[in-house]
Amino acid sequence: MRAVTAELAKLATLPSVWLATLLALVVPTGIALLNRGVPGPDRGYQELAFGVMGVIVLGVVAVSSEYLAEGADAGGGRQLTTSLTAVPSRLRFLAAKALAVVLVAVPLAFAATAVTMAVVQVRLDLGRLAGVVCYWTYTALLAFAITVLLRHGIVPLTVLLVNTSVVSVTYLLTKVTPLANYFPDMAGVRMFVGKVATDVVITPLVGLLVMSAWVAGLLAVAGAVFVRRDA
């Protein structure tokens, strides 16, 4: 429990986490405002699917802040050494950090859904709300796990943000192979977005299971690597 409160304190005092919070609230509502007047069954939910940037930043910086090296003239230290001397069990440390990310991502997803739905003035469907919260939390954890593996924030941040905003590489890949529909983001959005521009039909439940498998798998690999390698 102490390790979790310590991780929450870390997140609360990191300026990039406040930026992540801002992005999480502004991006989906901003897109919703731009799309005003465009009707459709996925009104609001489509915006929330694109709006995961905030939780991507959250998941990445929670980990990359540990690996960020101080400048050589500042001694070249990293926060990770402090973290692991305070909480020497690698698994406990990583689990506490992941839990802290979830504890921030879940209320963020609720808040973002509330303001987005208020903007588009669509009555909220509880099942789809659960899908949004799940998708956002899972996306944060995917970013988290990938950053643990890479030990650096720039690459996962760039790739994941570009994929959700500028060019959806995973979506383009669905034009090449139907298997690409089972990428975590492509499958995960089916939890709350009905119409996706591909021919492969994935039910919300299958979407949940596919994305759950990705998250569990990547977290397991990240944990196994993190426990074994030198800090």
């Binding site: 310590a6 991780e7 304190a9 870390k10 005092t13 990191l14 300026p15 990039s16 802040s65 960020l68 101080e70 500042a74 001694g75 070249g76 230290g77 990293r78 926060q79 050494t81 402090t82 305070a86």
Partner: peptide, 18 residues
């Protein structure tokens, strides 16, 4: 090495989480 703290946190905030 160094301070072992993240550069964008204050000294007090660093000590508090530890």
């Amino acid at each position: 090495d160094g301070s072992g703290a993240h550069r964008s946190r204050t000294g007090r905030a660093h000590l508090r989480w530890v």
